[in-house]
Simulated scan of single mutants.
Amino acid sequence: MKSGEKSKLNSLGFAKPESETRVVVAMSGGVDSSVCAALLAQQGYDVVGVTLQLYDHGEAIQKAKACCAGQDIYDAQRVAEMMGFPHYVLDYESNFKESVIDDFADTYLQGATPIPCVRCNQTVKFRDLLQVAKDLDADCMATGHYIRRVEGPNGPELHRAHDGGKDQSYFLFATTKAQLDFLRFPLGAMDKSETRKLASEMGLNVASKPDSQDICFVPTGKYTDVIEKLRPEAATPGNIVHMDGTVLGTHRGVMYYTIGQRRGLGLPDGSGADPLFVVRIDADKGEVIVGPRKALERSQLWLTDINWIGQGEFGPELDGMAIKVKVRSTRPPAPAHLRLSGNHIIVELDTPDMGLSPGQACVFYANDDQAARTLGGGWITRTE
């Protein structure tokens, strides 16, 4: 190479041939991670596929099509065999149970609403599996998430996916700067339809496999089935109390209720002229507090465990900063402001929202028309 000549980077950002660039790909057995691995292998990278066995199907649930079930492991192995790269299955049941499943159950019992997919990315995948990738002397780890890693003037940035309907930035807000430096997301610029088309063109056995709609260890989306099995002693009855202090009835246990719930309260006829909603859960007192729909509105969110991947450090100089936030994965980013007062980190929503609960994530985005760059986020501990 001539003096001063800039090295040519491959598609993953390394100044060496694809064949000398080792990539560990996290493979769930679904179409996205399969296409991710197959594309990289097709491009000539030194691909190593890894699938995590995350739970004992019989211990907590039984669900044949969960993302980590036996069929999915088999599907990942088939893709690896077809594309000619090694594939390993690692037993991470104990890690997953401690970091994700137990946290899920305990958070519900505290009257909060957990997001286990964020915890899984934050711990098992981007902490434990990432370390495995480094132990395998990988240059990077790739996943099939729909999100974009963009090289900015001060290092890699996390941006929303090209396919807004599949964007997974909400679930990846806890990705640290160090992790982002090592991660790659080859599908971030694609539409889901394009991914399926590629799977079909490459002849992958998962081309028509349906997407997983539920949390992988929760059958048919019924969270209480899992909690009942993991914490059978936790179904403690208590009072359903109106915001004005009136006891309206009793409940089977706080774990059966979520903020914003209207149906299934089990209240006698005439409990209120207007429809009643769960507006708050007091797990310490064992009370479910109900009130009118208007009482669900919240404009201030108290946060903890902030992960900041924006410009500079997270500190007092950000007080008053205009940002956009997501408080649900399916909503577009909405205008808000950061407030930092002493040890308190507060997000003020420009427009009040409903049904927000402790335990949920509040994800920060740049305050521009596209709101593409993800700046991090935190966990909601309190709402007002």
Rank of each mutant, 00 (worst) to 15 (best):
P358C: 10
I61M: 12
V241S: 08
P333M: 02
R184K: 13
L340Q: 14
L204A: 11
K285D: 12
Q168P: 12
R262P: 00
L52W: 02
V47C: 06
M321E: 06
R339K: 15
H162V: 10
D225P: 00
Y146I: 00
D368V: 01
V278T: 10
R263Y: 14
L198R: 13
G152P: 06
E98S: 11
V347R: 07
C68P: 01
K324L: 06
P332S: 07
P358H: 06
Y256F: 13
H159R: 01
T250S: 14
V206A: 06
C216Y: 15
G291C: 04
V347Q: 09
E313N: 05
H57Q: 08
G260N: 07
I227H: 09
G164S: 07
Q213W: 14
A366R: 10
L338E: 03
L52G: 03
L198N: 12
D128Y: 15
G272S: 07
V325D: 06
D214N: 15
R148I: 03
T224P: 05
V89K: 11
Q300W: 13
V278F: 09
Y170W: 12
S33G: 03
L318Q: 02
I101M: 02
K6W: 02
E348D: 14
D305H: 03
R184F: 13
T351Q: 10
A66F: 12
A178P: 13
K326D: 14
F185K: 01
T246V: 05
L318T: 03
D102Y: 11
E297R: 03
Y55L: 07
R331P: 00
P86N: 14
